[in-house]
Amino acid sequence: MEMLEMRGIVKRYNRFTLGPLDFNVPKGAVVGLVGENGAGKTTLIKAALGLITLDEGKVLFEGAPLEDDEAGIKERLGVVFEGSSFPEELKIPEIGRLMGAAYRSWDREAFAKYREQFGLPEDKKVKELSKGMRMKLSIAVALSHRAQFLLLDEATSGLDPVMREELLDILLDFMQDENHSVLLSSHITSDLERIADYIAFLKDGELVFFENKDDLIYSHGIVRVGRRELEQIDKEFLVSVRENAYECECLIRNARQFAGKYPQLAVDRASVEDIVLFYVRGERR
């Protein structure tokens, strides 16, 4: 069962088009969404949430379109955007009261627990909080109404390493329930590498790949060769090549088969960041 299903979605702007693409977030999975600035990550999340009107395609939550039960579906969503969206004049307890009036499933105790855990001061207004603190507040709210599906758009980017680590632990804890799902867009690929089950990569509005993270990492590798050796490599293995004055760095697919076919060439492990950088900057083969 898919928590989120986007089928054949297309959103056209004057100078940018997202899609056509299919995109799913399975139940019980964390999907990491990566891509350059302007690749369409936020547009995709907005499309999922119905904040923009699609030109084509449809969006389903657990098999039902948002219009079928808008309040019920949104009750189960926890959303964090980059930067806070809370009114700046409000104090944190007031935000708690506001959310209590908005969500049927609002858990005051959970909010108090997260408020304490994140060190969110009771007496300060939102405008007096740092960027990191605002982000923590958004996350505390998202986690305090018993959401089943968290959508986090660049949620970790304003946080210090300690808080990022803490947030990832919280997300892992959230994922203990197999009915929960997370869609997390981030520039920080190491965060995604740590918690994501699937990695989706967007480039210029197109979904370049959507793969199981472990399959992605283990099927790819990096090989360093000279130009002559490069010519001899079977093109089927080559994904992307980056050349410098001395050598060619190649991102290859089917790393195990490649190692069997070219035992004389050393295949290094590719991280998610390496793979993304090769797709963005390398010369596609």
Binding site: L49, K74, V79, E88, A102, Y103
Partner: peptide
Amino acid sequence: KNRWERYALTMPFS
């Protein structure tokens, strides 16, 4: 100013 509507529309409001 706060981009509140973008956020509020993800809450149980139509």
